[in-house]
Every structure is written in structure tokens, then in C-alpha cells.
Amino acid sequence: MVRHDTFTISRHLDVPPGEVFTAFADTAIRRRWFRLPGSGASYEHDFRVGGGETASSTYTGLDTAPERLEYRSRYIDIVGPHRIVYGYEAVVDGELRWTSLVTVRLGVDPDGTRLDWTEQVTFLRYEGDGSVDLAHLRGASVLRLNGLDAALHTGRPRQQRR
């Protein structure tokens, strides 16, 4: 069985859309906010239509055996600085757990950017009715966007924030 879900997270970021777009495109900035949990992580990033990103790490939770995590994405549509559409796969210990289509929309907002992150996910393996897996994925996306916001302000004095 599979489970399909969709969620949207909206954020106001107090920098212009071009800076937010750059945080997705520039690999050095991206590494400050896009990370897999665990140790021994490796990343490759090619920000162009048809390009994508691969990442892997080993995660060890409390009282659990280590898990090998893999992330593989492909950029489908990039319209800077307004929109990024990509698909990705999440693999744990060699097993495809879920795949998603993500649309990131960046719009001008008073004093910054309105970011809308919409994710359409297909869970291929999940626990129980899948509601815990969806909550986990949504929570991880919120944390990732928190990291994006922090990365946008790294090295920027507080009084210069827009």
C-alpha cells in the first residue's frame, strides 16, 4: 500500500527573494541549512534543470541500530528568483521509503519574501496509518526552513536585517 499526502508551509523571510533563491542555488550557502542528520555526510549539488542533489549519512538514534540515509533529487523547473520545482527520494538502508514533489514559491512580501513550500509526498513504506511519518516529514521540513532563515542571516549584523 501507498499513502499520499500534501502539505504547505508558508514563511516570511526578511530578505529579498533574490537572496532566498541564492540560498537554494549556491552550494556553500545551501550546506549551512540543508543537511542530513547523522555523521559521515557527503553531498553533491548541481543547481540546474535536470541537475540535482545527492546526499548520504549514517544516523544512529537512541537505542537504535545505525541507519544509512540517502537523499536523491532532480530539479524539474527553476525560474529565478520566483520558483523551484524538484522531486526527491528518501532511502533508508537501501529501501525507498518515500518520494516527493516539492514546489518552492518565492514572492515579494513587505520587507522581504513570502516563501511557500508545498510538498506532495508518496509514502511507500510507513508505520501504522502513516500519520506519524507525515508528522515527521513535515516537522523536518519546518526545521530545514528554520535553518534556511538562520543561514540567510549568518554574518549579517542584526541592525542590517531587513
Rank of each mutant, 00 (worst) to 15 (best):
M1A: 14
M1T: 13
V2Q: 15
R3P: 00
F7E: 03
F7C: 03
I9C: 01
R11L: 08
R11I: 02
R11F: 03
H12Q: 12
L13M: 10
D14V: 01
V15M: 01
P16C: 00
P16W: 00
P17D: 05
E19G: 00
A23Q: 06
F24L: 09
D26R: 07
T27D: 13
T27G: 09
A28D: 15
R31T: 13
R32D: 12
R32S: 10
A41K: 12
A41M: 15
E44Y: 08
E44N: 13
D46Q: 10
F47T: 05
R48H: 13
V49E: 15
T54M: 06
A55H: 03
S56Q: 14
T58L: 01
T58E: 11
Y59M: 11
T60E: 14
G61Y: 08
L62D: 13
A65D: 15
A65W: 04
L69T: 07
E70F: 02
R72Y: 02
R72V: 13
R72Q: 13
S73N: 03
R74N: 05
R74S: 06
I76A: 14
D77C: 02
I78T: 06
G80W: 00
G80Q: 11
P81Y: 10
P81C: 11
H82Q: 13
H82R: 15
G87A: 14
G87F: 04
V91P: 01
V91H: 03
D93W: 01
G94Q: 05
G94M: 01
S100E: 12
S100G: 05
L101F: 06
V102N: 06
V102P: 09
T103D: 13
R105N: 07
G107Y: 01
G107H: 10
P110D: 07
R114P: 05
R114D: 10
D116V: 10
W117D: 09
E119R: 06
E119P: 02
V121H: 06
T122E: 15
T122H: 03
R125V: 11
R125S: 11
R125P: 00
D129V: 10
D129G: 07
G130V: 08
G130Q: 09
S131K: 12
V132H: 12
H136W: 08
R138Y: 06
R138K: 15
G139F: 04
A140Y: 00
S141Y: 00
R144H: 08
G147L: 07
G147Y: 07
G147P: 11
A150Y: 12
A151W: 03
L152I: 06
T154F: 08
G155L: 10
R158F: 14
Q159F: 09
Q160L: 14
R161N: 04
R161F: 08
